Simulated scan of single mutants.
Amino acid sequence: MKFGLQLGYWMAQPPEHAGEIIVAAEAAGFDAVFAAESWGSDAFGPLAWWGSRTERIRLGTSVVQLSARTPTAAAMHALTLDHLSGGRVILGLGVSGPQVVEGWYGQPFAKPLARTREYVDIIRQVLARRAPVTSAGPHYPLPYTGAGALGLGKPLKPIVHPLRADLPIWLGAEGPKNVALAAEIADGWLAIYYTPRLADMYNEWLDEGFARAGARRSRADFEIAASTQVVITDDPAAEVERMRWVVALYIGGMGAPELNFHAQVYRRMGYEREVDEIGRLFQAGKKAEAAAIVPDQMILDTAIIGDEAHVREQLKVWEAAGVTMLLVGVSDTEQLARLAPLVQ
Score class of each variant (00 low, 15 high):
residue 72 T to S: 12
residue 317 V to L: 12
residue 40 G to Y: 13
residue 6 Q to E: 10
residue 1 M to F: 07
residue 209 G to I: 15
residue 130 R to D: 01
residue 289 E to V: 09
residue 94 G to V: 07
residue 261 F to M: 10
residue 8 G to P: 15
residue 339 L to Y: 11
residue 130 R to V: 02
residue 57 I to N: 07
residue 67 S to R: 14
residue 244 R to C: 00
residue 205 W to N: 02
residue 153 G to I: 05
residue 118 E to K: 00
residue 229 Q to I: 14
residue 232 I to Y: 12
residue 202 Y to H: 05
residue 268 R to M: 08
residue 303 A to W: 14
residue 275 V to S: 06
residue 334 E to T: 11
residue 182 A to W: 15
residue 49 W to D: 01
residue 227 S to P: 02
residue 237 A to V: 14
residue 236 P to C: 05
residue 26 E to W: 06
residue 199 A to K: 15
residue 80 T to M: 04
residue 41 S to L: 11
residue 239 E to I: 11
residue 304 I to E: 03
residue 101 V to D: 03
residue 207 D to R: 12
residue 120 V to S: 02
residue 133 V to Q: 07
residue 277 E to G: 03
residue 266 Y to I: 04
residue 147 A to L: 11
residue 164 R to C: 00
residue 117 R to P: 08
residue 228 T to P: 10
residue 316 K to N: 10
residue 315 L to E: 11
residue 100 V to T: 12
residue 128 A to R: 03
residue 240 V to S: 05
residue 87 G to L: 05
residue 246 V to R: 12
residue 107 Q to W: 11
residue 188 G to E: 07
residue 91 L to W: 08
residue 261 F to W: 09
residue 276 D to I: 12
residue 18 A to H: 03
residue 238 A to H: 09
residue 342 L to H: 06
residue 195 T to R: 13
residue 189 W to R: 12
residue 86 G to V: 01
residue 258 E to L: 10
residue 149 A to G: 04
residue 155 P to H: 07
residue 176 P to C: 05
residue 169 I to Y: 07
residue 100 V to F: 01
residue 81 L to H: 01
residue 95 V to C: 08
residue 13 Q to V: 14
residue 213 A to Y: 15
residue 148 G to N: 01
residue 315 L to K: 14
residue 81 L to D: 01
residue 278 I to C: 01
residue 255 G to R: 14
residue 77 H to Q: 07
residue 74 A to N: 05
residue 202 Y to Q: 03
residue 10 W to P: 06
residue 68 A to M: 13
residue 314 Q to M: 14
residue 55 E to Y: 07
residue 320 A to W: 12
residue 206 L to V: 11
residue 78 A to K: 07
residue 131 A to Y: 08
residue 158 P to L: 06
residue 274 E to G: 06
residue 151 G to W: 08
residue 30 F to Q: 03
residue 287 K to H: 10
residue 289 E to K: 08
residue 287 K to S: 07
residue 85 S to A: 07
residue 111 K to R: 06
residue 155 P to W: 09
residue 128 A to H: 00
residue 254 M to A: 08
residue 305 I to E: 00
residue 281 L to R: 13
residue 78 A to Q: 03
residue 109 F to N: 05
residue 129 R to M: 05
residue 139 H to D: 02
residue 258 E to M: 09
residue 185 I to V: 15
residue 214 G to W: 15
residue 83 H to G: 00
residue 103 G to K: 02
residue 66 L to H: 10
residue 275 V to L: 11
residue 292 A to T: 09
residue 54 T to C: 01
residue 178 N to M: 15
residue 202 Y to F: 09
residue 206 L to T: 07
residue 206 L to M: 13
residue 111 K to W: 08
residue 327 L to T: 10
residue 269 M to L: 13
residue 214 G to Y: 14
residue 132 P to V: 00
residue 187 D to W: 10
residue 151 G to Q: 03
residue 274 E to P: 06
residue 165 A to P: 06
residue 124 R to T: 02
residue 17 H to P: 12
residue 206 L to D: 02
residue 164 R to M: 00
residue 55 E to G: 05
residue 68 A to W: 15
residue 68 A to G: 15
residue 25 A to V: 04
residue 104 W to P: 00
residue 183 A to M: 15
residue 254 M to H: 13
residue 112 P to G: 04
residue 31 D to P: 04
residue 18 A to N: 01
residue 169 I to M: 09
residue 130 R to K: 03
residue 329 G to W: 12
residue 190 L to E: 08
residue 157 K to W: 04
residue 315 L to S: 09
residue 6 Q to N: 10
residue 154 K to C: 06
